[in-house]
Design a protein around this nucleic acid. Structure first.
Lengths: 222, 222
DNA sequence: CGTCTTTCTGACCATTTGGTAAAAGTTAAG
DNA sequence: CTTAACTTTTACCAAATGGTCAGAAAGACG
């Protein structure tokens, strides 16, 4: 009938892509409620009715964006591996997240908008998939700490801090640039700063210099 | 005429307050465009027409909220003083910001929404007042570092990190609670975690262990 | 009590917005 | 060239939304 679900033609694939691109622009800055089909249509260079030919509704468009987002959003955290050296592994995660903030700021803002609105369309995902992933990686961090290869930190709040600091450069990009002044690229300095910040907090030899000897016997002072 | 600007009666003061309260609820979760007068009216328990008696327009309401917000928003950063001990001073700032995230999450979200939308109503403020304040405090931090009383950090990005990590607990409250699981209050752990995080990054004795001996009267174990 | 001001409501409105239905135009296979 | 599927436009629409205006209610006050 009206809506072939899978793209069968080039035109279809192309226009769906164009529409999602435009929708991302608008949704990410206006939020779901604030965005209008007319704005998206204008951004896509198509007529409003044409959008509705490719996507049943505003909701459908938004949902399509979220699906695509979650697809890649968790990749960096998933990539945190038990194999590597703990500090390096976490710093690599920070670096990847920052790169994503730089490369996909709109996606980050789309996510932020969704959470600010109370996560009505993502509660399920967050409470299950995301939560499980955090739990898994937090356990890994906890293990590293127990082994003395990482300074003691709250694993889950460490993850929150990484999310917060890196996504800040996407979500609050305007503010960051206005505060730094025109023409200054925030990212190189951000990269150095965040690496130093988390390295300092994570390097085991630092703050509490005891009980770090790779055990084999009791941990406490005899 | 229709609009006595300054509240002259109790009813007026009271209703204006009720309306702003309700508007804060709605604007902070829906953003400016996403919010409707009907929603605000419902939240306030007044009729839409009644709102428009007290505030000329939706814009006026929003503007009133922003003014009030900025009034108190910068207080914590302003309070960072050259007098105190550097690390303690910054940690106190972190603590205050986190308290604000806990006490005034809606205000934080209102601000976040505004920035996400490209800060159309606050560019001026950010580029002038906020920027100047950050510049001032960054200079203070830089001085502390030069004096060896603080580990070397990028002062402005340090401030960004503090904003990001503390406001995260307001703006992403839903996510934080869903990830942590029901019934767990994020704030006590957040407080401990952030203090440790920034202490580690700021304490001069840490990473680069030189030129830090607490001169004149050491605080270390005697 | 009667008047004046402040507060609130009901009727109304233009515009915007998300969405339908159907016709018209386009493409591509047979 | 025909025909059938795909794409786009035209014409509508109901509901929502921000806002106006006149009048009614309710206080305040001499």
């Amino acid at each position: 009938m009206n809506l072939p679900k899978r793209p069968r033609t080039r035109i279809q694939a192309r226009n769906r892509e164009i529409i999602l691109e435009a929708a991302l622009d608008v949704f990410s800055t206006q939020g779901f409620r604030g965005a209008t089909l007319d704005q998206i249509a204008a951004a896509a260079g198509l007529s409003k009715h044409n959008l509705l030919y490719y996507y049943d509704s505003k909701e459908t468009m938004h949902a399509a964006l979220l699906v695509r987002l979650l697809d890649t959003w968790l990749a960096p955290l998933r990539a945190m591996s038990p194999q590597g050296e703990p500090v390096a592994e976490i710093l690599r995660y920070v670096g990847r997240k920052l790169e994503m903030a730089q490369e996909f700021p709109r996606e980050s803002r789309l996510f932020a908008n969704e959470i600010l609105q109370g996560a009505p369309r993502m509660e399920g995902f967050i409470a299950t998939e995301l939560r499980a992933l955090v739990e898994e990686k937090a356990a890994l961090v906890a293990r590293w700490i127990a082994e003395g290869r990482l300074a003691p930190v709250d694993p889950r709040h460490l993850i929150f801090s990484i999310w917060a600091t890196t996504q800040h450069y996407a979500d609050f990009d305007v503010q960051v640039r206005l505060v730094l002044g025109p023409g200054e690229d925030p990212f190189p300095a951000a990269r150095r700063h965040l690496e130093a910040l988390f390295r300092a907090a994570l390097t085991p030899t630092g703050p509490t210099t005891d009980a770090v000897a790779p055990l084999a016997g009791g941990t406490g002072p005899g």
